[in-house]
């Protein structure tokens, strides 16, 4: 029974891989071809050569779905619907892999803890998967301070995951500060969606 389930799971994982992203819309999820532009400008005072940034690609695999039909993460499901006792085949992702924060705060809310417990359990069930915690802030305030605040948030999430048993070596922390908003906009509706830590699962 277990073996069939496992095989089914792997198939679904592979099937689900194609269009699946665990991150909403971020470029970090997509392998990128390096952009090379060399624009050399001759001349005196104006002569400034141009170089460009390269980016290594990172393959990101969504965490095991344990569900059928390549179900995507569904918002709003309560943890009760995915309890260990129930048949795992019917469970879709109970929460999107993101935790939100109050203004200027790095405190993980009760809701945040629920999300993290859920993903901690999944991580413990798949020891080969690592998680990268990407910390973000909204656009208000200064960019460099926000870079540090984003890191604080990601570290706070790491602490919670460790409390739930995920080994530190499997958790990576990174901050983008205010540079990668999830939602464009200059009001609280947008800002509240940008104060976040995203969980990105990596093999």
């Amino acid at each position: 029974m277990k073996r069939i389930m496992l095989a089914g799971t792997v198939t679904l994982m592979l099937a689900g891989c194609a269009g699946q992203q665990t991150k909403p819309d971020q470029s970090g999820a997509t392998p990128v071809e390096p952009v090379t532009e060399a624009e050399k400008q001759a001349g005196e005072h104006g002569g400034l050569p141009v170089t460009s940034g390269n980016r290594g690609g990172v393959e990101v695999i969504p965490i095991d779905q344990q569900g059928e039909g390549g179900a995507e993460g569904v918002e709003g499901l309560r943890p009760g619907e995915a309890q260990a006792g129930e048949t795992q085949q019917n469970a879709a992702l109970a929460y999107p892999p993101v935790v939100y924060f109050d203004t200027d705060s790095d405190v993980v809310s009760e809701e945040g803890r629920q999300v993290l417990k859920y993903y901690a359990d999944k991580l413990l069930a798949q020891p080969e998967v690592k998680v990268r915690l990407e910390g973000h802030t909204d656009e208000r305030g200064t960019p460099d301070y926000n870079l540090a605040l984003g890191e604080r948030r990601a570290k706070a999430v790491k602490e919670v995951l460790e409390l739930y048993g995920v080994p530190a070596e499997r958790i990576e922390v990174i901050s983008y500060g205010e540079e990668r908003p999830a939602v464009p906009g200059h009001n609280e509706a947008a800002w509240s969606k940008n104060r976040r830590v995203e969980l990105v699962f990596i093999k």
Binding site: L48, P49, T51, Y176, R180
Partner: peptide, 21 residues
Amino acid sequence: VADSDGHNERAVLRSWEPITS
């Protein structure tokens, strides 16, 4: 980089990832 009156704008680095500070 540009003159402080906005002229002579020159790109010195281009990237698909953020540049700050």
